[in-house]
Amino acid sequence: MFMVRRRHIENVRSVTEGLDKAHEDHIAAYSRTIASGNLVDEDGRMAGVLAISGHETWEAIRHYVYEDPFTKAGAYAEIEIKELNLYLLDAAYARAPDWLLERNPDLAPRFTPVERVGGR
């Protein structure tokens, strides 16, 4: 899975005007979004997007992000893609990090603890 953060350029609509249909078609064809939300600036205005994506390879996530008509038009001042392990609550493969189970002991019967190797 991947986390994708895209920060808009100023006046983003000036470069994306007329591309909404192509952008929506691209999303319909290639999105594997699990969760997403708008990034907001200090004034509460939309400043970008943060998404968790279920793409399984770097090739797939890069295609999704960089072949998007909005990206090609220059809508983003910054794009960050990070690979991550996401623990899905109530999923068939229900694992949870120790900190989650320590803070929420009532959830312990629903999860399998995750054994950490190395890292922080």
Results as ranks from 00 to 15, higher is better:
M1L: 01
M1C: 01
F2H: 07
F2S: 01
M3I: 14
V4F: 00
R5Y: 00
R6D: 05
R7A: 10
H8W: 15
E10H: 11
N11I: 00
V12R: 15
V12D: 03
R13Q: 11
R13C: 07
V15C: 09
V15S: 13
L19I: 10
L19Q: 05
L19M: 03
L19D: 03
D20F: 13
D20R: 14
D20S: 13
K21R: 14
K21E: 12
A22G: 08
H23E: 13
H23V: 12
H23L: 12
H23S: 13
E24R: 15
H26T: 11
H26N: 11
A28V: 09
A28W: 11
A29L: 11
Y30Q: 04
Y30W: 09
S31T: 12
S31A: 12
S31L: 02
R32N: 11
R32D: 05
T33G: 08
I34C: 11
S36V: 01
S36K: 11
L39R: 11
V40A: 11
D41F: 12
E42W: 06
D43Q: 14
G44W: 12
G44S: 12
G44N: 13
M46F: 15
A47E: 13
G48S: 13
V49F: 05
L50P: 09
L50H: 06
I52A: 06
I52C: 01
G54D: 08
T57L: 10
T57N: 08
W58D: 15
W58N: 15
E59P: 05
A60V: 02
R62P: 03
H63Q: 02
Y64V: 07
Y64W: 15
V65E: 02
V65F: 09
Y66P: 12
Y66D: 07
E67H: 13
E67M: 08
D68S: 10
P69Q: 07
F70V: 11
F70N: 15
T71P: 09
K72H: 08
A73H: 04
A75F: 04
A75D: 06
Y76F: 15
A77E: 14
I79F: 07
I79D: 05
I79G: 01
E80P: 10
E80D: 09
I81S: 04
I81C: 09
K82P: 02
K82W: 05
E83M: 04
L84K: 02
N85G: 01
L88G: 10
L89F: 08
L89R: 02
D90M: 02
A91H: 05
A91Q: 05
Y93F: 03
Y93C: 02
A94P: 01
A94N: 10
R95D: 00
A96P: 05
P97R: 01
W99S: 03
W99I: 09
W99K: 03
L101W: 02
E102K: 01
E102T: 00
P105Q: 01
D106V: 03
L107A: 03
L107Q: 00
A108W: 02
A108G: 02
A108V: 01
P109T: 06
P109W: 04
P109N: 09
R110Q: 03
F111Q: 06
E115R: 07
R116C: 05
V117W: 02
V117K: 00
V117F: 00
G118F: 14
G118E: 10
G119A: 07
G119T: 11
G119L: 03
R120Q: 09
R120N: 13
